[in-house]
Amino acid sequence: MLELALRGLITGGVYALLAVSLILIWNASGVVNFAQGEWLMFGAFIGAWLVSKLHINVVLALLLTALLVGALGYLLEVTTYHPLRGQPHKSQVIATIGVSVALENLAMVIWGVYPISMPPLFGKEPIHFLGATLLPQEIGISVVTILLLGVLGLVMTRTMFGKQVRAVSNDEQAAQLLGLPVNRILRLTFAASGVIAGIAGFLVAPLYFATTTMGASLLLKTFAAVVVGGFGSIPGALVGGFSLGLIEIFATNYISSAYKDAYAFIILMAVLIVRPGGIFGERVGDKV
């Protein structure tokens, strides 16, 4: 029971990270970025490649991965979002779908069609904790997830950059009138979102094989997490991500494992039909 809960929280952490990175861009630009899953996939591939092929130190590899995927985020703003500013959001969203197709196939060009795996990061000896058995890397993953979310929270509330990002997310034109460099802030927001998605990918790499299609399927489930949390709220995305991880693992264990991949979507539809504002409601002033 406890072991299941912990496992659920670990998977949930990955959903939460991806959900938060998605919401960062959504809040700032009003765009649902379909390439977000591919950023995670690139994080997984770059991480696995750096660690298992180039034998780079894990911490360094994590930082490099974050940097490279962050650059992908920056590039998306420059090459795709920026040229389409002023167009309806629908066109921008569709363009990100095109980017996701391109990135998926770019990964295939770089790393080939075969999945890559990352070696276990912190040894193989399982750790026993209150009757639960966990692998060291599962604990490592949760520690990094919590640290990352903590840093993100501090950046968003304590730094000028975080406040600027939130201001642009609230009202882009008012921010422009106050002399905020909106373009630069948007670019950096996309980059920050890429960093988070890249780290999330790095973290899942030792759990699953890195495959070129992993991003798309994780992203679709992350939409469920985002909707549960109420589209547009970062704390909501966190809660949504963790609860999705928990629900998925308990339902798989106690109801049926065949429908493992459907639970997220059943929740997604149920929440949308019953409470489209998300379980935790929407804050006043949020977009949507």
Binding site: T79, T80, P83, L84, S91, I94, A95, I97, G98, V99, S100, V101, A102, L103, E104, N105, L106, M108, V109
Partner: peptide
């Protein structure tokens, strides 16, 4: 397929 994706983005822009 990489070019296919890029072509779509360019077409939309």
């Amino acid at each position: 397929m990489l070019l296919y994706g890029i072509a779509i983005v360019v077409l939309i822009i």
